[in-house]
């Protein structure tokens, strides 16, 4: 009796599973850790609505690029855009997914969040090891009235390769010729000075541990860890605070229409309200996918996320894409990605 009952339940279970998997395509993606929180939130909400599931492995941007090139996932994700030539060679298309920002964080006693201001060249000189003390006249010049201690600066950087680092050093390269020449840009660089922490949380932990240190993390980490972040002077010469608004301003002021395959890094963006180190995450997909139905399912998911997933993004301190950028992306899908 009991055996046949269990068997029946098991069969019913298998039948139900088969029915679900026949209906729902399990879309797989891999890449940047930066988007993992929002992708899993979107995925959960999307799957309760439509039954379609997104499996995203946050293995890092480099891993995401490798996986999509190997064709083992439906989409890859990278914090560093691929240039159109590389995309073309691999047969890939690219579009932005979500916007965030990198902020300088400091450990200085008596300085409150947002009260210390940096300029791009100043950060470059600190990270080059040219400015070694907090009471350096160059720091004091943009921080009139702030009592700066006579202490050594300890630079904290990422020890792992990361999109956060990429956007940070991309910005430093844009504003400092010395940085561009000596260090350059990439997901990991040869740091002239400092200590390396693993991941945003590693940098956050080191900055909290070492008095007089300065590092850089995603805004969400700075807020969650209640760290002292710095304000920045942007390309227009205005001092801005890191916030969703200033990140959005940077994304909106960027000229996406001229960027082929959305190959645009929005650091040092123009505009009075723009945060200078805003960062975009990119999604990579095949233009002529082997399995068109799965790619279509993935695009459906992103379409839903862009149009109806904005509140979720904002709750997690990301900036959703501006509406006209979403329109451009949808036009790009129509023109470039064959899903039917």
């Amino acid at each position: 009796m009991s055996t046949s009952f269990t068997t029946r339940i098991a069969f019913a279970g298998i039948a139900a599973l088969a029915a679900v998997s026949a209906q729902a395509a399990d879309i797989t993606g891999a890449g940047a850790t930066f988007v993992y929180p929002i992708l899993s939130k979107w995925s959960a909400d999307y799957s309760t609505k439509t039954g379609n599931k997104i499996n995203y492995q946050s293995i890092g941007s480099g891993g995401g690029i490798a996986q999509i090139k190997a064709g083992t996932v439906d989409f890859g994700s990278s914090d560093k855009p691929l240039d159109p030539k590389e995309l073309n060679e691999a047969g890939l298309g690219q579009f932005p997914s979500v916007i965030g920002g990198v902020v300088p964080v400091v450990n200085l006693q008596g300085v409150a969040g947002g009260k210390i201001t940096f300029t791009g060249p100043l950060l470059a000189d600190i990270f080059l090891g040219k400015i070694t003390k907090w009471n350096d006249p160059a720091i004091a010049a943009v921080n009139a009235g702030l009592a700066l201690p006579d202490g050594l600066i300890t630079v904290v950087h990422r020890s792992d390769g990361s999109g956060t680092t990429f956007n940070w050093v991309n910005y430093l390269s844009k504003v400092s010729p010395a940085w561009k020449e000596k260090v350059g840009e990439g997901t990991s660089v040869q740091w002239p000075v400092g200590v390396g922490g693993k991941g945003n949380e590693g940098v956050a932990a080191y900055v909290k541990q070492i008095p007089g240190s300065i590092g850089y993390v995603e805004l969400a980490y700075a807020l969650q860890n209640k760290m002292t972040y710095g304000a920045m002077q942007n390309a227009a010469g205005k001092v801005v605070q890191p916030s969703r608004e200033s990140f959005q301003a940077a994304a909106a002021s960027a000229d996406w229409t001229k960027a082929q395959d959305f190959y645009l890094i929005i650091t040092n963006a123009p505009g009075d309200a723009s945060w200078p180190i805003a960062a975009t995450n990119f999604i990579l997909m095949y233009k002529q996918p082997k399995d068109a139905a799965r790619s279509k399912a993935a695009l459906d998911f992103f379409k839903w996320a862009f149009e109806q997933g904005k509140t979720q993004a904002e709750q997690l301190d990301y900036v959703p894409l501006p509406d006209d950028l979403v329109k451009q992306i949808e036009a790009y899908w129509q023109a470039q990605i064959k899903t039917g």
């Binding site: 020890s159 792992d160 990361s162 997901t187 200590v195």
Partner: peptide, 18 residues
């Protein structure tokens, strides 16, 4: 002063080696 070790370097950098 901070330094690096073989195992730590690999663990830190392998996933994003581009």
């Amino acid at each position: 002063m901070p330094g690096n070790s073989i195992a730590a370097t690999i663990a830190n950098e392998f996933s994003e080696a581009d």
